[in-house]
Design a protein around this nucleic acid. Structure first.
Lengths: 140, 140
DNA sequence: GTGTTTGCAAAGTGTTTGCAATTTA
DNA sequence: TAAATTGCAAACACTTTGCAAACAC
């Protein structure tokens, strides 16, 4: 009962976030949102999410998966991660955090923001302001 | 005279590095090496270097530019940087350092390793060892 | 109903590859 | 001369786009 309520509440919040981003609640967007946000935090590529949608018998095209990932990113529901030129990863964890990236397996895992102490002892280039710091700890 | 000697010395060193990497001293590799290492530290993409080679009337194909960038990277003469999914940057600065990446201009600039104090308060995933830490300070 | 969204297929980008011709050592 | 390298064009992987049909509100 408690679990159901919790799910329901976050689902309502999700709908609000989609609506306030000006996105209609289409079958495809709702299904992809469920795959993305229905469980634990995760890292996906477009191709991976597309595969999951097919496995779940969700009728959606790859083009729509790409569009949706970008729309969700713009809406602040996802965060795009750059670890691999040639492939975009999207992270359902939008809070301040960093990543382990395994060069052997291609696997990506989160590092809580509090678990990295970082200090920049230098000003950014003239006229620029820091918009974020990404730390990628490469492992093998 | 001093300048000539200095140039000559680093050039000799470069040739040694290429040879010890098992790379023959071909016209293309030498010309690309001159473009890459002949001046100050720089960040290039394959396309950019190819353009410069053409401007310098160096007969080289784009495929060879790609091959060469990877061979130089394997030989430790370049470092590959991932800031933009869909495009690889190569850095002639192979020492320990980080980057500013301007999201507005796409410009990349170095941050000396000593100018970033970073501490990882967490063990890497089981069975993995840290092979490097990349810090990208995004600015706009 | 009206404007948005979808799906398809085509086009676009950046990169890699197969292989014959060329070049280096 | 033998082995490595080059250049071309084709193939590749990932992503975006144009547009008619379908859908949400």
């Amino acid at each position: 009962m408690k679990r159901a309520m919790k799910t329901e509440r976050s689902y309502t919040r999700l709908l609000d976030q989609l609506r306030s981003a000006g996105l209609r609640l289409t079958r495809q967007r709702l299904a992809l949102a469920k795959l993305l946000f229905g469980g634990m935090e995760r890292h996906v590529t477009a191709e991976l999410l597309y595969g999951e949608a097919q496995a779940a018998r969700v009728p959606v095209s790859l083009a729509t998966v790409y569009n949706t990932l970008h729309q969700f990113t713009d809406a602040g529901l996802l965060k795009e991660i750059m670890v691999d030129s040639g492939r975009s990863y999207f992270d359902t964890n939008t809070s301040h955090h960093h990543h382990f990236y395994c060069e052997t397996s291609g696997e990506l895992s989160d590092i809580d923001g509090a678990d990295v102490a970082i200090e920049l002892l230098l000003e950014p280039p003239l006229g620029r302001e820091v918009s974020g710091i990404d730390v990628i700890v490469r492992v093998k």
